[in-house]
Amino acid sequence: MTDVFILLIIFVGIFTQSVLGTAGIYLPIMALLLFYIAVNFNIIRTLFYALLCGILADAASGYQFPCHIFIYSLLPLLGLYWVKIHDLRPLYLNFFPGILVAAIQIIPLALIRFRFDDPAFQLFHKWIPILLAGIIFGALFMPLAIAILDYFAHALKVTRYQDAGSKPQAKSRRWY
């Protein structure tokens, strides 16, 4: 059931990001959802899905350098760190990882794809608006996504994000 739940989240993420992208809106939805998965489930499983999403995203976008593989690979580590250092209970507190994940997704892409023929134009007309929009969206979307996905997780009897820090599996030595 856990894998079905994760695959459904990934499918919805890819679909939504593609549809919004075709409308000209760049939002780091997939990265935010991968962070949710990373907090909920163990690192190797999350890493496997992060790599799968990274390969899909890079194959779909036709980039020569597989930047999404590396970007998405950071999210399981961030998720692990977030579980260790923070209490996940207050929902609004999760605006912070939302901002962080959006920045992790957009800043490397901006550095790779930045064109120096007109740097000021590139910076102020392209990358700063994308980064700001992504960060604001991340801050708003992350708590909302947690609330919605936790509702489904509870219904499907899968680990909830807000119980991730206190779940019995977290203390287990199993990493696979």
Binding site: I43, I44, I55, A60, S73
Partner: peptide, 29 residues
């Protein structure tokens, strides 16, 4: 050990990306 496995997986995926690119591109398309 966990980080080593993660590193191997990431580098393996990145190194073999161009081999799988067409396959995953078709799956996506």
């Amino acid at each position: 050990g966990m980080l080593a496995i993660a590193g191997v997986l990431i580098l393996g995926a990145a190194a073999t990306f161009h081999g799988f690119e067409t396959f995953f591109g078709r799956v996506y398309a």
